[in-house]
């Protein structure tokens, strides 16, 4: 188990592309507080960025909406929860692994963002509750990189 602060810090932003930078800065601050190394901080940021971008582009489909980001950090890692009230969408079901046999121009890159997100974190959970999508991502300080660089 990752040891985390009891009380989360909270950021609420409009679901716009322009707000993604605020989300990234929020996540990187938490990563710094938890002492994540550069690689783990990058993975956390990438995962949150991809899921938040997906909420903006596909969840609310460019319409009005809000995203609530809750973060808890501790010596063991960082846990981020993303909440939105767009139509129900389970990222695990929408995941699209890369398909080596398909030419790049025929691939759906959209689902690839979610694939990147899910392969970047140490743990992921999704629940739809009270009309809200709630995704929880954890990156451990000592986590094993689930997709290590090739030698």
């Amino acid at each position: 188990m990752v040891e985390l602060a009891r009380t989360p810090v909270v950021l609420e932003v409009p679901a716009t592309v322009g707000a993604l930078g605020d989300v990234a800065a929020f996540v990187l601050r938490l990563a710094g507080r938890a002492g994540l190394d550069r690689r783990a901080a990058y993975r956390l940021r990438l995962a949150v960025d991809e899921l938040a971008t997906n909420i903006v582009m596909h969840g609310y489909r460019g319409g009005d909406g809000r995203i609530t980001v809750r973060g808890r950090s501790g010596p063991g890692g960082v846990q981020i929860t993303l909440e939105d009230s767009a139509p129900a969408f389970d990222p695990v079901a929408g995941r699209l692994p890369p398909c080596p046999g398909v030419p790049p121009q025929d691939r759906r890159i959209g689902g690839l963002g979610i694939h990147l997100a899910l392969t970047s974190v140490d743990a992921f959970a999704y629940v739809y509750r009270d009309g809200r999508n709630i995704s929880t991502l954890t990156v451990k300080a000592e986590g094993t990189d689930p997709c290590p660089p090739r030698p």
Binding site: R39, L46, P104, C147, P149, R150
Partner: peptide, 12 residues
Amino acid sequence: EPVSRTIRTAGL
């Protein structure tokens, strides 16, 4: 490295 890794993850 993390950028080239993302490119490889996508198979590009």
